Measured scan of single mutants.
Amino acid sequence: KKRQCKVLFEYIPQNEDELELKVGDIIDINEEVEEGWWSGTLNNKLGLFPSNFVKELEVTD
């Protein structure tokens, strides 16, 4: 099962390897990279994003 999260706050990337987040976006979570940062895929782009800007969705079948 893939983990997903929903964006709660807009985020403007500070580095090229970060994702731009818009409220309501759904991100496929890949892994936790470091404290406070997750790796995920949004709009076919893989990048990092701050985990405190999102809420993980309940996994359903």
Rank of each mutant, 00 (worst) to 15 (best):
L8S: 12
W38K: 03
L46N: 14
L48N: 10
I12R: 09
T60K: 13
Q4E: 04
T41N: 13
L8G: 11
G47W: 02
D25W: 00
N15C: 08
N43V: 03
E16D: 10
F49Y: 08
I12H: 10
P50T: 07
G47D: 03
W38F: 09
K6Q: 15
T41G: 04
E31N: 13
N30K: 15
E31M: 09
S39F: 05
K22C: 12
Y11P: 05
L21N: 07
V59Y: 13
K22L: 00
F49H: 04
V33Q: 04
K6L: 15
E20P: 12
N44T: 03
L8K: 08
F53S: 13
L8V: 12
T41A: 10
D28H: 11
W38E: 00
I12V: 09
E32A: 06
E18S: 01
V54S: 00
S51I: 10
V23Y: 11
K45A: 01
N15L: 05
L8F: 15
E10W: 00
F49K: 04
L57I: 15
L21I: 06
E56I: 09
Y11C: 01
Q4W: 11
F9Y: 15
C5Q: 13
E56N: 03
V7R: 10
K22G: 10
S39L: 14
F53E: 01
V7W: 00
N43S: 07
E16A: 08
E20V: 06
N43H: 13
V33T: 05
L19K: 02
E16L: 06
F9K: 15
E31Y: 11
L46Y: 13
L42W: 00
L57Y: 15
E32V: 11
S51R: 07
E35Q: 11
G36C: 05
C5G: 15
D61P: 14
S39K: 15
G24V: 03
V54I: 11
P50C: 01
N30D: 11
N52R: 14
E56R: 10
Y11L: 00
K1L: 05
Y11Q: 00
D28W: 08
N43I: 00
T41M: 10
T41Q: 12
N15V: 07
E56Y: 02
Q4S: 15
L46P: 10
G47C: 00
R3C: 06
E32C: 08
L19A: 00
N44L: 05
L57E: 11
D17S: 15
E18M: 05
F9V: 13
I26R: 01
G47A: 09
D17Y: 10
I12Q: 09
V7F: 01
E16T: 14
D17T: 08
S39R: 14
E34P: 02
L21C: 01
W38D: 04
K55R: 13
L19V: 03
D28L: 06
E31A: 12
D61A: 08
K6T: 15
D28R: 05
F9E: 15
W38A: 02
V7G: 00
G40F: 05
Q14G: 07
E58I: 09
E16R: 13
R3D: 08
I27Y: 03
G36D: 10
I27A: 03
V54F: 06
D28E: 15
E20W: 13
E10H: 02
N44M: 07
I29F: 08
F53H: 14
V7L: 04
I12D: 08
E35M: 10
Y11W: 07
L21Q: 01
K55A: 13
Y11K: 06
Y11S: 04
N15M: 03
E20G: 07
I26C: 02
D17K: 04
N43Q: 08
D28C: 09
Y11V: 02
L48V: 12
L8Y: 08
K1F: 07
E18Y: 04
V23T: 11
E10S: 14
W38M: 09
S51L: 07
D61I: 09
V33H: 06
N43R: 14
L48Q: 08
K1I: 09
L57S: 03
W37Y: 05
G36S: 11
K55D: 08
V7E: 00
V59N: 07
I12A: 13
G24Y: 04
E31K: 14
R3K: 07
E31G: 10
F53W: 04
D61C: 04
N52W: 05
V7K: 00
P50N: 12
T60L: 13
F53V: 10
N52M: 11
C5W: 02
L48H: 08
V7I: 00
E35P: 11
N52F: 09
N52G: 12
K6A: 14
T60R: 07
E16I: 04
F9C: 08
E18Q: 06
L8I: 14
V59I: 12
E20H: 09
E56V: 11
Y11F: 02
D28I: 09
I29K: 03
K6R: 14
C5S: 07
I27M: 02
L42Y: 13
P50Y: 06
E32I: 08
L46V: 14
E31C: 06
E20R: 11
E35Y: 06
Q4H: 05
W37L: 07
S51T: 12
I29Q: 01
E58T: 10
C5E: 02
E10M: 04
C5H: 00
L46W: 13
V54L: 02
I26Q: 02
Q14C: 08
W37K: 03
I29M: 14
V54N: 01
N30L: 14
L57P: 05
D61M: 11
K2Y: 10
C5N: 04
W38C: 06
D17M: 13
N15I: 01
E18G: 05
L57A: 04
K22E: 03
V33P: 02
E35K: 07
K2R: 07
G40R: 03
R3G: 10
D61T: 07
L42D: 09
N44D: 08
D25C: 03
I27N: 04
N52V: 09
E35D: 11
E20L: 10
I27C: 02
N43A: 12
P50W: 02
W38V: 05
L21P: 00
I27T: 00
L21V: 03
K22V: 06
I27L: 06
K55T: 10
